[in-house]
Write a protein that binds this DNA or RNA. Structure first.
Lengths: 272, 272
DNA sequence: CAAGAACTTCCATCTCATGGAAGTTTCGCA
DNA sequence: TGCGAAACTTCCATGAGATGGAAGTTCTTG
């Protein structure tokens, strides 16, 4: 009432669990954000637990979101992301323009490589897999569209890192998680590799993220020559010929880059 | 104001511009919803105009949404859907599970048909294009992933309609928009065709949505045999052999349906 | 069949969204 | 190059709408 209400910067020390801020919008997005690759369908209570929001609040929000098609309720009562969100996501231009333009070229690569072909952009300190093509029996890869994978242990990631800003490299080189025996966790080693990648124009990984998977990748450039994405092939490790794909990727990348520049891509991919 | 607010079924006649309801969540979603295929990037003022919300309100909401990555600001200051939304959309199971499972099969069809291959589900009274494969030079089709197209003028649409509920058919047959000279706008005619489609298991359209485009489509079934999606090929009209694709589609659909049933698809696709 | 968990409804309290007004920046045009 | 208009941003008094504890209902599980 009449009394207090100090603007902001008061708490912070206390709970401060979910940095959602007190706004309704923030809370609604926190609810949506509680869904991820391993929590695609959640019960009300689960959402409440994961967001730290009181059950009643979640209940209200979730129902409102459902009414608008942002969430959908599965047959078992669990909730999942609704088609409205999917449709909207379809409009995210970096990804969609990229995807629209790139898919046909990825097809071409796929025909030659017969291994999983993927394309990714930078998203914070990880790669965001924008799209991927894989035959009915390509090796089981971790990357699905929407996956966020580490920069230093994937082919596309190394490319984006090598051509990324100093600021980005510093942040990533600061902490290199290990995924397999072959993961490069030594900053100087990686740094040297990045230089090579820059000069030779492609990157290679050998079982650095998952055992049995090898990949090569090349950069994609937009307007003005800025690297805005990376194109790569992931194959099973026993395929010694994977480096054979480099020229194919490079030719494709050249053609694709021209197209991308035309369709106006070229900003994007900033480190948030 | 102070007065009324009868629960539901009141307005409809009057303005009723944006049936957003007074909730914050509703308003935030209205902002997001103001983005569509033809309005992928919008200025603050444009959003305000299109949603009917006061500029100040939009200003606040948009900034909040941007802070959370739900919107992104392009280089020119315009806003667009952000990668957070895209990533979330990636989790929408009907579409993603569907897409994940179906893409390889679509590949196979594409190799044989060499024409645009698409897959769609029901979304209200339209189809929602879930995915599409097209070579670098397939005919320019209207369907991109995320497009919502009419049920009675597309191959996939007719399939979904033919296998849809009575309620759905009634609603659609009630108003059949015309797109070309060949569009079927006579309810009895269409009704007869739907029966044929049900019995023979595939649908054909000839220039009913856009001149020069022909398509064939077959149903995809999930757990329990319910039709949950449709698979189709779109080709240029002078391709007399398009019906040659029917067996291919049917074989593929059979295999795909089995897979879909396995991965638990089978609810979804209800008429909201 | 009982106990606990998940979900829903209710409602008094007060926080936070609201949107008009006014100030600042950007843009288009002469 | 300068002026008017449009786009954007900041401010803040007000009250609409969000909040969440409590209690009731329905589903699970042992």
């Amino acid at each position: 009432m009449s009394g207090g209400y100090t603007p902001g910067m008061s708490e912070k020390g206390a709970a401060a669990q979910h940095a959602a801020g007190p706004s309704v919008t923030g809370r609604a997005l926190a609810v949506l954000d509680s869904f991820d690759q391993t929590h695609r369908r959640q019960s009300l209570a689960a959402i409440s637990r994961r967001t730290g929001l009181p059950l009643t609040t979640v209940h209200r929000l979730v129902h409102e979101l459902e009414r608008h098609g942002a969430l959908a309720r599965g047959a078992d009562g669990d909730y999942e992301i609704g088609s409205k969100i999917w449709r909207l996501g379809t409009l995210a231009s970096v990804h969609v323009e990229l995807r629209e333009v790139a898919l046909p070229y990825m097809e071409d690569v796929y025909q030659l490589a017969n291994d999983a072909v993927q394309i990714a952009v930078l998203d914070g300190l990880r790669i965001l897999v924008v799209d991927r093509i894989a035959g009915s029996r390509s090796i089981e890869v971790l990357s699905k569209p929407g996956s966020r994978l580490p920069l230093h242990a994937t082919g596309v990631g190394k490319v984006l890192l090598a051509f990324g800003g100093q600021e980005l490299q510093d942040a990533v080189l600061g902490s290199l998680d290990r995924y397999t025996d072959s993961t490069i966790t030594d900053a100087p080693t990686l740094k040297a590799q990045l230089l090579t990648i820059r000069s030779q124009g492609f990157a290679v990984t050998r079982e650095e993220l998952a055992p049995g998977a090898t990949s090569v990748a090349v950069p994609l450039r937009g307007k003005g020559g800025t690297v805005i994405a990376a194109l790569g092939v992931v194959s099973s490790s026993d395929n010694a010929e994977i480096s054979r794909m480099v020229p194919v990727l490079q030719v494709t990348a050249a053609a694709l880059s021209k197209k991308l520049a035309q369709s106006g891509l070229g900003e994007a991919s900033r480190l948030r």
